[in-house]
Design a protein around this nucleic acid. Structure first.
Length: 220
DNA sequence: GGCCAGGACACCA
DNA sequence: TGGTGTCATGGC
């Protein structure tokens, strides 16, 4: 099967424009956001990040020193705050113990080693790891999320049980290994997912409508 | 008032 | 390795 992912990319880019992800001021903020946004609404995550910023906690050192219960209270709006507080703590402890708390040193690892290290940290799975590699470490590692799986499934290019690894390779084998394309494409797929390719799809006006197998109301 | 959101992990068979 | 339960707030 030949499918032109660049064609899809260009359509999304023309429709939605450049997304300029990741919305954050620092690399550490990207990492915190990547953990906080797990299975959560980004608007809620923003509230949590604002709370952290107002308390000067957007640095590894500050997070390392803050009381975990205090951390939980501040990130509460993001949901799953007990779990996420543990995950955030786990990350800064790992950084402290293995890289002297030096984030630049850690993010300077080559992509393969960085991914391996990230996946060894509690609370960081494939998607969060790839998000950190792509947007914080600025190395091309394609991110697969729930929206991407759904969109690919609706397009007939994947099943619901297609593995993360296989879907990731599907994109990486068909796209130029270009940092900006990787960044934008993932952001654009999320935007499409939010606006059209939802659980209850709004296929009208979808830029991929003509090449989508599901058309309307196919329950996946 | 129910559904859903930019996942990961523990536990089980 | 695959399926299921759990974690939780807030917008729509």
């Amino acid at each position: 099967m030949s499918i032109d992912l660049i064609e899809i990319y260009n359509r999304l880019l023309n429709r939605f424009g450049k997304q300029n992800w990741w919305p954050a001021e620092t690399e550490f903020e990207i990492i915190i956001g990547a953990i906080l946004t797990q299975a959560s609404n980004w608007r809620n995550v923003e509230r949590a990040i604002i709370n952290l910023r107002e308390n000067d906690l957007l640095s590894p050192k500050a997070i390392l020193g803050v009381d975990e219960n205090k951390l939980k209270e501040l990130i509460r709006p993001a949901g799953y705050y007990n779990e996420k507080a543990k995950k955030i703590k786990a990350f800064v402890r790992f950084l402290h113990e293995n890289y002297d708390g030096n984030l630049d040193k850690f993010l300077g690892l080559d992509a393969e080693k960085l991914r391996e290290e990230l996946l060894s940290i509690y609370g960081i799975g494939p998607e969060t790891a790839d998000s950190i590699i792509l947007y914080a470490s600025n190395k091309p590692s394609f991110v697969i999320d729930a929206y991407t799986k759904r969109i690919m499934s609706r397009l007939g290019l994947a099943n619901e049980d297609t593995s993360y690894h296989d879907l990731k390779k599907f994109f990486e084998l068909r796209l130029p290994k270009d940092l900006e394309i990787y960044k934008e494409f993932h952001a654009l797929l999320v935007e499409l997912g939010k606006t059209h390719c939802k659980v209850r799809p709004k296929c009208d006006e979808c830029p991929l409508n003509d090449i989508c197998e599901s058309q309307n109301e196919r329950d996946i």
